[in-house]
Amino acid sequence: MLSVKTLQWMVYGFLAIIVAIVFQQVYTSMTEQGIASGGPYNNGAAYPRAIAITIGVLLVCQIFTDRFSTESEQEINSTIEASDLRRPVFLLVLFATYLGLLKTLGYHLTTTPVVLGIMLICGARNIPKLFLGALIMSFSFAYIFENILNVVLPGGIYSLNIPW
């Protein structure tokens, strides 16, 4: 179970890390390059630092608003059930694996199983029909991109590309 309040704190954490990275980079990499001081021409760090400070100030305002807000209590206390998250998590894991394997195994070896996998995650169960659908989708996209738009899709270590 994940409450909106938890998600809000995750966003605060994420933004706080972003702000911290900006300052870390300004005082290390940018200072070493000599672009963290001087006038508007030379000082490439002033603008991102100003934006990071603005984000920090706005973040404090938002935390303050959330802390003392009474009207959005109902919204903040609303939750997302863990069972609702199962499918998106599976989808993202499968998609991340696909993107990771695309360069190694190539488009043609990875796409059909992934499309089939996504349809299975969605709850469809007619495997032969789904497999046919996945094949059609995968090859139609390959045809459009490779043949019509002249995009060379990743062939992987086996250099699998269809000479249309």
Partner: peptide, 21 residues
């Protein structure tokens, strides 16, 4: 909006030609 502005700063700075983030 500010997050978007910050994302736009990533890369080579047009003025100083320094590298940012």
């Amino acid at each position: 909006g500010c997050f978007g502005l910050l994302l736009a700063t990533i890369g080579t700075d047009e003025f100083s030609t320094g590298y940012r983030f």
